[in-house]
Design a protein around this nucleic acid. Sequence first.
DNA 1: GGGAATTGCAACGCTCCGCAACAGCCGGCC
DNA 2: GGCCGGCTGTTGCGGAGCGTTGCAATTCCC
Lengths: 255, 255
Amino acid sequence: MDPQTTPQPPPPPPQAPPPHILVVDDDREIRDLLSKFLERQGMRVSAARDAREARRLWPLGRYHLVVLDLMLPGESGLDFARWLRGQSEVPIVMLTAMGEETDRIVGLELGADDYVAKPFNPRELLARIRAVLRRTGGEPGAPRKEPPPKAVRFAGWTLEPARRRLLDPEGTEVPLTGGEYELLVILLERPNRVLTRDMLMDLLHNRQAGPFDRAIDVAVSRLRRKLEDDGRNPQLIKTVRGGGYVLAASVERVH
Amino acid sequence: MDPQTTPQPPPPPPQAPPPHILVVDDDREIRDLLSKFLERQGMRVSAARDAREARRLWPLGRYHLVVLDLMLPGESGLDFARWLRGQSEVPIVMLTAMGEETDRIVGLELGADDYVAKPFNPRELLARIRAVLRRTGGEPGAPRKEPPPKAVRFAGWTLEPARRRLLDPEGTEVPLTGGEYELLVILLERPNRVLTRDMLMDLLHNRQAGPFDRAIDVAVSRLRRKLEDDGRNPQLIKTVRGGGYVLAASVERVH
DNA sequence: GGGAATTGCAACGCTCCGCAACAGCCGGCC
DNA sequence: GGCCGGCTGTTGCGGAGCGTTGCAATTCCC
């Protein structure tokens, strides 16, 4: 009965002109890898080794998006991003080494549209590039659509996406693990809607839930504890027996 | 979720004209399966193989809802969804393969009303189609329905849909189980109307009541207790002997 | 009034869920 | 490299939700 999915052939390029990407990274291997990979996905790619070269290339093309390594020889990627922001609204996807959290935060505040941590999976980068292109409408130089909110408030709690942190009603930070954060974001994007375990598994991990999979239950349980939500009588994340979970709160996005 | 239930004989069609669904999927098996299945549930179904065909069909019918596979040959489902959104506010339920995370997320941002991950259970899709139709009011091309009320008041009691909770006349919360809450919502949406057990079973569980099914009676009994409504002399949920149940109260929606 | 039909609901049991405890994994650090 | 600590999937147990059943109460009809 269940239609089984087979891996699909590479999606045909949409009829729109192929997006033009500028890749800025000092690592030759990464530049080549990305160029090949993205071109195979129907995109045009130009590459620069450092900020100086990127600055030279910039006026020569109308780029739809810039992939920018933060760690560059000479002028830092952060400075280049700032310069770029002065020039254009072009979307930026940052590549960051692990552990450079502060850079990442500064980058996002600076107006980067997304970031991917190195070492990265090209497919993931592609996915994020596509997502950013869609969000921004894919027009080079077009004004961006909807910036991520500065804060998301729900039931007294505050989530700050730029810093990936959660504040309780008194304003003190409650540390969340990566998984807890992702789950909370997923719930906050769909308040008052029942999300099945399948959906949550899919949204959280891109994979299918096994028949006796309790991973979601446990993840919810852990998030509830952080949110001080009693699982026996939850106020925030309610259980729908046989169905899934619902975030029972009104969510306000603050820009 | 539901074990594969045997196909039901056509349920008593609601008084409204049957909703007309447009199914867009390149897999012939899925199209046929869904057409048969949804038609057996009293819906009209048209099917298209790809975006081009769907575009051709679109002006020919006034569809209440579109079921759209994201992975289509040629123009992607996402692009078609975007086009559709330009044309109309018609609700969209997406079918997605696992692992296409960003597409899915973008789809929801784009205004899809729900999505079901493949492989899916037809009953689940049906439930989601119904839920979406209910939310959107089910009128083809009609503007999106008014937002759900902040509170629903009846006989001194208050239901807060956003928080999925019930307050007694003194304002203290009365914890409801999921089933009790759903039943109460169903009753509140149809005050002063007799609802047969069959209807209630269908609305509550998307399934048909067996001949000696007392599940609804017990559910009502449990809800009555929470509402402090004596079953021997009920004031709120009255019994219609041989008929079903009625919520005997005026319901006020507070926005 | 009496029997049949119908409903209210307590009691029971199956299934699903909450979550503590455990274990595997991975990244960081010396 | 090896140890350590945090994160997250797995497992198992106890408990809650709810469908089923049976019986008493109520209503209907003659």
